[in-house]
Design a protein around this nucleic acid. Structure first.
Lengths: 208, 208
DNA sequence: CTTGACAGCTAATCGAAATTAGCTTATAAT
DNA sequence: ATTATAAGCTAATTTCGATTAGCTGTCAAG
């Protein structure tokens, strides 16, 4: 029935673990519980499976970023939202985002697949940069600009603030992707990072 | 003559651009100006070429990190070195490091190769994490600890300072690797980052 | 001069993996 | 009941890319 979906799902897992070239159609079939030739009842080729995953991902990302206001265009939220943000608030939302990226099976596998497959394919490279650099930075930059305007944070360059807030989370994600056993260590570090960020940029004088 | 070296050099370029599996021995041979079978006069197999690159890289890294004191063990430098560091000093050394990582052909191609090839191979994943996360962080953490002790910077968690200093540079490197045309934009951003970092953590009150 | 190692070449060979052919069964609509 | 379609299987077939065989020319040592 939904064999087609199961194929996409298992293929994504395998691609994200070993990369496109190191996954054989027989592996995908095996994971689904069928034989390789049967895959061709559902997809024209191995490449078509990959492309289908990509399409689905793009749809998902658009939906998700619409939901989270994570895309670059969002000047939608207004300053009121941010006028009363505490350190704990920042930690909560920051860690929430981090944990979501870290643990959501779909997001995670897709990130790994992109990391693996990107070079040589300009389209993939662009997608990677958009999703994991430009969009988050642009969203957070807007957010920090409002936090500054709202008097919650110091009045510093919001692009740089976004960079200093987000880049550490990105680096820790890449570490976790490669070494799942270091997850807890990285989660603790992430929290320390956000707290310190909040103290450093916060206007209120809290103990340093 | 030094055909062997030329093979390693061209292979590294190709691997870094397209990944191991997408490079054919014929491509490497072609880049060197010979035919595929002739490669086997110099290396036992395609894998042997890859391994040789890796070995050479490890040697280079050890030599280089000994030179730059970039490895984890270096508590060697003493506080005196750091007792009188200005914002411009930090910018100069930080940007120097950034530009070196960005432009040095060898370092750059190796980083891209590791990025591409890492999953599925635990040894490569470990190498990547060591070279591009743990070692720089640990070195810089030590450095910031001294800068704090020396009264140059505020007295904050040095691990987090290192993370907030280094991770943005790392993120910008990955952007540049995928989109060379954005290099200048990223270089400017890197400088803004370092300056702001220095102001935020600096003890002297400079204009914000 | 001649011999042997070296580095290159062309023309096989080998192997692995994707894809196709063609058969079978089940199910659902006519 | 019949038939068409979907989805699976086994057994080819095809393709492609790594590797091997075996020949050739060069050049330095003797």
């Amino acid at each position: 029935m939904d064999t087609k979906k199961r194929i996409l799902d298992e293929a994504l897992t395998l691609f994200s673990e070993r990369g496109y070239a190191n996954v054989f159609v027989a592996d995908i079939a095996g994971a689904v519980g069928i034989k390789a030739p049967s895959l061709y009842k559902h997809f024209r080729s191995k490449q078509a499976i990959f492309d289908a995953i990509l399409d689905e991902m793009k749809k998902n990302y658009d939906r998700q970023s619409a939901m989270l206001d994570m895309d670059g265009n969002s000047a939608s939220a207004d300053a009121a939202h941010f006028s009363a943000v505490s350190e704990d608030d920042l930690v909560k939302t920051g860690m929430g985002l981090f944990m979501y990226f870290l643990h959501d099976g779909y997001v995670r596998r897709f990130r790994k697949m992109l990391t693996v497959g990107q070079f040589g394919d300009p389209e993939l490279a662009a997608l990677f940069t958009k999703q994991y650099a430009d969009d988050p930075l642009s969203y957070q930059s807007a957010m920090f600009a409002m936090l500054s305007a709202g008097g919650v944070l110091k009045d510093a360059d919001p692009d740089v603030m976004a960079l200093q807030f987000y880049a550490p989370l990105f680096l820790m994600l890449t570490v976790c992707d490669r070494h799942p056993e270091r997850e807890n260590e990285q989660i603790r570090l992430a929290e320390r990072h956000i707290r310190q960020f909040s103290r450093i940029y916060g206007k209120r004088e809290e103990t340093l």
